[in-house]
Simulated scan of single mutants.
Amino acid sequence: MKLRSVSAAAAAAVVLALTATACGSGSDSGSNGDKINIGIKFDQPGLGLKTPDGKYAGFDVDVATYVAKELGYSEDKINWKQAPSAERENLIKNGDVKFVVASYSINDKRKKEVDFAGPYFLTHQDLLVRADDNSITKVEDLNSKKLCSVTGSTSAQNVKEKLAPKADLQQLGGYSECLTGLENKAVDALTTDASILAGYASQKELQGKFKLVGLKMSDENYGIGLKKGDDELRGKINKALEKMVSDGTWEKLVKKNFGPSGYKYEPAPAVQK
Rank of each mutant, 00 (worst) to 15 (best):
V61H: 00
F42Q: 13
T180P: 07
K255Y: 07
G173M: 11
R4C: 11
V67W: 00
Y200R: 06
G214L: 01
T19R: 13
G199F: 00
A102Y: 00
I196H: 02
A83E: 00
A102I: 05
K50D: 04
K41Q: 15
N107W: 02
P119Q: 05
S153I: 11
Q171G: 10
R130N: 12
G248M: 03
D28F: 10
S218Y: 00
Y263S: 01
M244G: 12
G173Q: 13
D108S: 15
F59Q: 09
A167P: 01
L3A: 15
D247C: 03
S25I: 15
N143R: 02
H124W: 08
T123Q: 04
K69M: 09
A270W: 05
G225H: 10
A270G: 13
P84G: 01
D133L: 10
G208I: 03
V67T: 04
G223T: 06
E220C: 13
D60Y: 00
F116T: 07
S246D: 07
D34Y: 05
L206Q: 05
V63Q: 05
N221V: 15
R110T: 06
C23W: 15
K98F: 10
R88W: 00
K145Q: 02
V6S: 14
K228T: 02
G174F: 14
D43S: 13
I224G: 07
Q207S: 14
A9T: 05
Y73I: 11
E251Q: 12
A131Y: 12
V187W: 04
Q82K: 15
D219K: 14
K111N: 12
D247I: 08
E266K: 05
S218A: 12
K93Q: 08
W80N: 11
A8H: 09
T123E: 01
V15P: 03
F258D: 04
G181R: 05
S202I: 06
Q203W: 06
L190Y: 09
G259W: 01
K111T: 14
A64S: 09
F210S: 01
K243V: 09
E75M: 11
A8Y: 09
A17I: 08
K243I: 12
T51N: 14
L49D: 06
N238R: 06
W250F: 02
L128S: 00
K35I: 11
N79H: 09
A20W: 03
W80C: 08
D62Q: 03
Y263R: 04
D53Q: 09
T65K: 06
S103K: 09
K209L: 03
K146A: 05
G229C: 02
Y66L: 04
D60V: 07
E140M: 07
L147A: 04
Q272W: 13
G48R: 00
T192W: 00
A13G: 09
D247E: 03
F99M: 03
